[in-house]
Deep mutational scan, measured.
Amino acid sequence: ADFLSNDDYAVYVRENIQVGMMVRCCRAYEEVCEGDVGKVIKLDRDGLHDLNVQCDWQQKGGTYWVRYIHVELIGY
């Protein structure tokens, strides 16, 4: 899907992401590398560009918070 802005994409992720879902990092962020796959373990839905998504990352080996714009949804 094509999104006009980071805000549009962040809204899409916020409306669709669920705890337990698998996500792929589509934009490297601090300790999380692009392409790493993680399981969503906690969500904080306050802002669009806060650290909203806590995942247990496979490559990184452990949990880390990222923003909506850092992840793509790959289902369960």
Rank of each mutant, 00 (worst) to 15 (best):
R45E: 10
C55I: 03
Q18H: 06
Q58N: 06
G61V: 03
D44Q: 14
F3K: 11
I41A: 02
N16Y: 05
R45L: 08
K42N: 15
E72V: 01
N16E: 07
G62M: 06
D50W: 02
E30V: 12
I69Y: 12
G35H: 07
I41S: 09
D7S: 12
E34S: 09
A28T: 06
G38S: 00
D56L: 08
A1T: 13
I74N: 12
F3I: 11
D2I: 14
V32R: 01
N6Y: 10
H70Q: 09
R14Y: 06
V66A: 01
V37K: 06
R14S: 08
G35R: 01
R14H: 10
V32W: 00
G38V: 00
Q18K: 15
D46Q: 15
Y68W: 13
C55F: 02
D56H: 05
I69W: 10
I74D: 09
M22H: 13
D44E: 14
G47K: 03
E72W: 01
M22Y: 15
V19N: 04
E72I: 04
K60E: 05
E31F: 07
G38A: 02
R27C: 12
H49C: 15
N6W: 15
V37I: 14
R67T: 12
F3R: 09
M22E: 15
R14E: 13
S5C: 06
S5Q: 07
D2L: 05
G61K: 12
G75A: 08
Y76S: 15
D8L: 06
H49Y: 07
H49K: 07
K60V: 06
V19W: 02
Q59I: 09
L43K: 02
Y29F: 12
H49M: 06
L4I: 05
C55Q: 01
V23R: 01
V11K: 14
R27V: 13
A28M: 07
I41V: 12
Y64R: 08
M21L: 06
R27E: 11
G61N: 04
V71S: 00
F3D: 11
E34V: 11
D50L: 00
L43C: 07
C33P: 10
V13W: 02
Q59W: 03
Y9W: 07
V32D: 02
W65K: 10
V53A: 08
E15S: 11
H49V: 04
L73P: 12
V71N: 06
M21S: 08
A28F: 05
I41H: 00
D56W: 09
L4W: 14
F3N: 14
C26S: 13
E15R: 12
C26K: 14
R67V: 07
H49A: 08
L43M: 04
W65F: 05
V23I: 04
Y64F: 09
N6Q: 05
D2P: 10
G35E: 02
D46C: 15
D7G: 11
Q59R: 14
G62K: 11
A28N: 15
E30F: 11
E30K: 13
H70E: 15
G20C: 00
H49F: 12
G20V: 00
V40M: 02
K39W: 06
V11G: 14
V23N: 01
G75W: 06
D46T: 15
V37R: 07
A28C: 03
R45M: 14
V40L: 01
Y76Q: 15
D8G: 09
D56S: 15
I17R: 02
G47F: 05
L48R: 09
Y29M: 02
W57K: 02
C55V: 15
E30G: 14
A28H: 10
V23H: 02
D8V: 05
Y64I: 05
H70V: 04
L73H: 04
V40D: 03
M22T: 13
R27N: 14
R24Q: 03
D7V: 03
Q59D: 14
I17Y: 06
C55R: 00
N6T: 15
V11A: 15
D56C: 09
V23L: 02
K42A: 12
V40R: 02
F3G: 05
K39F: 08
C55M: 00
E72Q: 07
G35S: 04
V11W: 12
D7Y: 08
W57N: 03
S5L: 10
Y12A: 12
R45D: 15
D50I: 05
E15C: 05
A10I: 07
V66M: 15
L51E: 09
G35Q: 00
Q59T: 10
V40P: 04
D56Q: 13
R24M: 11
D56T: 10
K39H: 13
K39P: 00
V11Y: 14
V23K: 01
E15I: 00
Q18M: 13
E15Q: 07
N6V: 13
T63Q: 04
C26D: 00
L43H: 05
H49Q: 10
L43D: 03
Y76K: 12
V66F: 00
Y9I: 03
I17S: 00
Y68V: 05
V11C: 15
R45V: 07
L43G: 00
Y29I: 11
D44F: 15
L4K: 14
L51R: 05
G20A: 00
E34L: 07
T63F: 06
G62I: 11
W57E: 01
Q58V: 14
M22G: 10
Q18R: 12
V32L: 08
D2E: 12
Y29V: 05
R67D: 11
K42W: 05
L73R: 03
W57A: 00
R14V: 00
L48E: 13
T63R: 11
Q58M: 03
E34I: 09
N16P: 03
A28G: 13
R24E: 09
D8W: 05
L73I: 09
E72K: 04
H70I: 01
Y64C: 14
V40H: 01
R24A: 07
W65E: 01
S5H: 15
D2Y: 13
G62S: 10
G75D: 08
Y68K: 01
D36E: 02
I74V: 12
S5P: 14
V19C: 13
G75F: 08
A10K: 05
R24F: 05
G47H: 05
H70L: 01
S5N: 13
K42R: 10
E15K: 09
N16I: 13
E34G: 03
V13M: 08
Q58P: 05
I41G: 00
V32Y: 08
E31A: 13
L43S: 00
G62Q: 15
A1S: 14
I69K: 13
G20P: 00
V71T: 05
D46H: 15
E72C: 09
L73C: 04
Q59F: 04
E34N: 04
I17F: 01
G35W: 02
Q59A: 11
Y76P: 14
G62R: 10
N6K: 14
C55P: 01
Y76T: 14
D46N: 15
L73W: 00
R14N: 15
R14W: 11
D36Q: 03
D36Y: 09
E72H: 03
D46F: 11
R14G: 07
D46W: 10
E15D: 09
G47V: 08
K60R: 12
W57I: 03
K42Q: 15
Y9G: 07
G38P: 00
G61E: 10
I41E: 03
V32C: 02
S5E: 11
Y76H: 07
K42P: 00
L51P: 06
Y68H: 08
E72S: 14
F3E: 08
T63N: 05
V66S: 01
M22S: 11
V32N: 06
G35N: 15
M21W: 06
L51I: 01
D46Y: 14
D2W: 08
I41F: 03
